[in-house]
Computed example of a mutant assay.
Amino acid sequence: MELARETDADGPEVEALLDTCFAPGRRALSSYRLREGVPPARNLCLVARASGGEVAAAVRYWPVRVGTHDAMLLGPIAVHPTRQGEGLGAWIMGASLDRAAVAGVKRILLVGDAPYYGRFGFRRLDGVIMPPPTNPERVLGLWDWDGVAGEVVRAT
């Protein structure tokens, strides 16, 4: 497995992977409204390619604002269904978090399952409000969220 930073050329393959994993209706999710018209943080977006060259997993990050604070919205993260259960999700997640730490990212936000993401250190964020309809129980954060509250909005 080869891990590399996502490039523009990877975009169509990553989008196909995301459609496979989440269906095209994924774009109706509230987190996608935060991504519209905002380029991803390419230095943090990763793809894992299998020995045959195909994209087996991918993770993306997007800049957002919470009140007066900058944050990175992690997601989507996807592993091709034929490769699930091999640890690729945890591997690409760990690599992307390491990259974010080195880049000086202060806080990461995602919408997901606390039992899964808790093993990476994510915790529920009280007072951080994602656009509706988002279950507040699924709004999770990592690193410096002390005193950060408010609505999550698109980075400008």
Rank of each mutant, 00 (worst) to 15 (best):
V152C: 06
R123I: 08
C21G: 03
P132Q: 00
T156N: 03
L44Y: 07
L73H: 07
A56M: 05
L74C: 12
L110S: 01
M93K: 10
G118I: 15
V139F: 11
A16S: 12
S31E: 15
G52S: 07
G112R: 07
R5C: 02
A57F: 11
A50E: 03
L73I: 12
N43Q: 11
P131D: 13
E137P: 02
G11P: 01
R27H: 15
G53K: 07
A9Y: 04
Y32T: 13
I108W: 00
P76H: 00
M93H: 05
V55I: 06
R60C: 11
E86G: 01
A100C: 08
D126I: 00
A57V: 10
P40T: 03
A90Y: 12
L140F: 08
P81M: 13
D10R: 08
W62R: 01
A90K: 15
V79N: 02
F120G: 06
G94F: 10
R138N: 02
V128L: 13
R49F: 00
R138P: 00
V153T: 14
R123Y: 04
I92E: 09
T7G: 09
L3Q: 03
T82I: 04
A101H: 04
A16W: 11
E15P: 01
L73T: 10
D146P: 01
F22Q: 04
Y117K: 07
K106G: 10
A48Y: 04
W145N: 05
L142C: 06
E151C: 03
I92R: 04
V59C: 04
W62Y: 12
R107A: 07
A90E: 14
G127R: 15
A78W: 07
R124T: 10
V14N: 04
S51V: 01
R42W: 15
L125E: 11
Q84V: 12
T134F: 03
G112F: 02
A58I: 08
D144R: 06
G53R: 09
E36G: 02
G11D: 10
C45A: 03
S96N: 02
L46E: 07
W62I: 11
L125Q: 14
S96F: 10
A90T: 01
G67N: 09
A58V: 11
L97N: 01
E36S: 11
Y61C: 08
R154G: 05
T82D: 15
S51H: 01
V139K: 12
L29V: 14
C21S: 05
D8A: 07
V47H: 12
A78D: 01
E6N: 05
P76S: 00
A16D: 14
S96Q: 07
R154A: 13
R49C: 00
G67M: 13
I129A: 03
V14Q: 02
A90N: 14
V102L: 06
C45H: 03
W91A: 15
V79H: 01
D10G: 00
V66D: 14
L109Q: 05
R99C: 10
V66N: 10
T7K: 11
V66F: 11
V64C: 06
V139R: 13
Y116V: 05
G150Y: 08
D70P: 11
L125V: 01
G75F: 07
E36P: 00
A95M: 11
T156P: 10
D144M: 10
Y116E: 03
E54I: 00
P76R: 00
C45E: 01
A48H: 07
G141A: 13
G85I: 12
